[in-house]
Structure formats: structure tokens, C-alpha cells
């Protein structure tokens, strides 16, 4: 009975792209904490196990502290990093727009000199949202662009400067070195790792590599308007806090915070991250509301 229920839940987790190692850990823990023999009859065992796993996962993505927020009147510099095509440029504008409406003096800096049309993309987005931007068609050095853009907007008294960067992956050391350089000159208040919600088992390794190169403070999961459950992304968070994970199963208060999920291609499609509904959806639990109340 227990095995069957666990198999079911494992499957749901696997299907949501939760990392294999994490699923194993969760399973072991369930076997340890859920003493099924001691549960009085009448209690729905499957629900109980689900709830235990649910709580574990919530703990993982909800460190219990508030996500990073820019402070008005200060110079807040945010750098966006992530894999190719994960949604950085799109999300930059969304975030800028979000804070512009909250009264911040917001601007965008394009340092992507690599992807064809990258500056046009940011420029068109920014123009539509009436957000000041900086970039160049001729400068080919992203580090120089970062310096120039940030300096310019700093001197003009902007309080939220958002820096977009090219997509990159851990296998290419030069790209990571470049990211480090940009980070060194920009000195971001917060670095945001943008992750595609459809990512599978490669999430873990990539996220770890990004985290160990620059100081990532927040994660944004994109493309959650589709069918994706985001388990790969969740695993990536666990992965980045993995040293601690090995010591105690109760996942630690790592300092990565989910701040937003992108839910569409349009500028308004940005929602605050709510751990409970996210994990509920991920575990394929239709009746999570009942679960949450208990």
C-alpha cells in the first residue's frame, strides 16, 4: 500500500521534471517520517503522504523571508542572467514595467551584443512600455556596454537599473567568464536567474553553475502559461543549495527566492510567486486547497 502510493507520487514528481536525486531524497524521507502503521484507520493515507511531500517541497521553495525588492530612492541595479532563450529580455521589460507602475524611475540596459536583433528586441519592448533604455549597434563589448549604460543612468538619478545579458550555458567557459566580468563592473544589487519552466533534468547542473559564478539572489520561472509544471526549475533551486541538502533532508533556508513567474509574452504577464499553488500544480494535485487547509 505505502509502496504503491509512493510510486504514484514519485511518478507525478518525475512527470513534473523534478530531479531524480531529489525524488529519491523525498521518498526516503517519507518512508522515515510517515509511520503508516501508526495512523488510525479512517485517515486517508495517500492524502497524508501527499501532504508530507507537499510540505517538504514548500519548505524548499519558501524560505519564509520576503523576496528581494528594490528600494525607492536608492540605486538598485538588477542583472538578468540565464540560458539561451529562457526569457530574460522579455522578462526584463516586464519587471521594469511592474516597478515603473509602482513609481520607480526605471531603465533598461542591453549588453547582449551577441544575439542577432537583441538590441532591437529590447528597444522595441522598452519603447512600447515607455521605459528609457541604453544599448548600441556598434559596440561589441558587453562589459563596456554595461559600464557605459549603468554609469549613464546612475548619473541621471534612476533608482532601478535593469541590465539584460546574453544567453549562456555552463559548457562554454568563456561565456561564464564574460558574465562574471559584467557582474564585477555592474556590481548588481541583485542578480536574477531566469529559468524556462519547461526545463528538464539539465536544470540542476546549469543552475548550480550559474549560482557558483555570480551571486544569484532571485529566480524567475518563465513560460508557466503553458502546460509545464516547473519541477525542473524547482529542482534547480534545490541544486543550488545542495551542499546543505546533503546534510539534512529538511531543505535549508537557501537564499534563493522565487519572486515572479512569467505567464505570457505580454508585458502584464508577470505574477508574484506563490509557493503553495505552484507546488500543488506541480504535484498534479487538483484538490490542493483542501490539502493546504489541513
Amino acid at each position: 500500500m505505502l509502496d504503491e502510493v509512493i510510486k504514484d507520487i514519485q511518478r507525478a514528481l518525475f512527470e513534473s521534471d523534478v530531479n531524480a536525486r531529489l525524488v529519491k531524497k523525498l521518498t526516503e524521507n517519507i518512508k522515515k517520517t510517515c509511520k503508516l502503521d501508526e495512523i488510525p484507520s479512517g485517515v486517508n493515507k495517500k492524502k497524508l503522504i501527499q501532504k508530507t511531500i507537499f510540505d517538504e517541497l514548500i519548505k524548499m521553495v519558501d524560505p519564509g523571508t520576503e523576496p528581494w525588492k528594490p528600494i525607492k530612492g536608492k540605486v538598485n541595479i538588477v542583472m538578468f542572467v540565464g540560458l539561451q532563450g529562457s526569457g530574460k529580455t522579455t522578462t526584463c521589460t516586464k519587471l521594469a514595467f511592474y516597478y515603473q507602475r509602482k513609481g520607480f524611475k526605471v531603465c533598461l540596459v542591453c549588453t547582449d551584443t551577441f544575439r542577432a536583433g537583441a538590441f532591437d528586441q529590447l528597444k522595441q519592448n522598452a519603447t512600447r512600455a515607455k521605459i528609457p533604455f541604453y544599448g548600441s549597434y556598434s559596440e561589441t563589448d558587453p562589459v563596456q556596454l554595461a559600464i557605459d549604460g549603468v554609469d549613464k543612468f546612475k548619473s541621471e538619478g534612476f533608482d532601478l537599473i535593469i541590465v539584460d545579458t546574453s544567453g549562456r550555458h555552463k559548457q562554454e567557459a568563456e561565456l561564464f567568464a564574460e558574465m562574471k566580468q559584467i557582474s564585477d563592473v555592474v556590481q548588481p544589487t541583485n542578480s536574477i536567474f531566469v529559468m524556462d519552466g519547461t526545463i528538464g533534468q539539465a536544470a540542476d547542473g546549469q543552475a548550480k553553475a550559474f549560482k557558483s559564478t555570480v551571486d544569484i539572489g532571485s529566480i524567475i520561472i518563465t513560460k508557466m502559461d503553458g502546460h509545464a509544471k516547473g519541477g525542473g526549475a524547482i529542482s534547480a533551486v534545490a541544486a543550488t543549495g545542495s551542499n546543505i541538502m546533503y546534510i539534512t533532508f529538511y531543505l535549508p533556508k537557501f537564499n534563493l527566492l522565487f519572486s515572479f513567474i512569467g505567464t505570457g509574452e505580454h508585458i502584464h504577464d508577470l505574477e508574484p510567486f506563490t509557493p503553495k499553488s505552484f507546488i500543488g500544480k506541480m504535484m498534479g494535485m487538483g484538490d490542493i486547497s483542501g490539502l493546504i487547509e489541513t
Binding site: A116, G117, D120, Q121, L122
Partner: peptide, 16 residues
């Protein structure tokens, strides 16, 4: 004809 910069992206590629 939807995503910002999509046309310019291809234009750059064709030029390259």
C-alpha cells in the same frame, strides 16, 4: 510578426 526584434534578427542573419 509578433515578437519584438524578430524581423531585425532575421535581417542580421541574412546580412551576415
Amino acid at each position: 510578426t509578433f515578437r519584438s526584434g524578430a524581423v531585425e534578427q532575421l535581417r542580421v542573419h541574412v546580412r551576415n
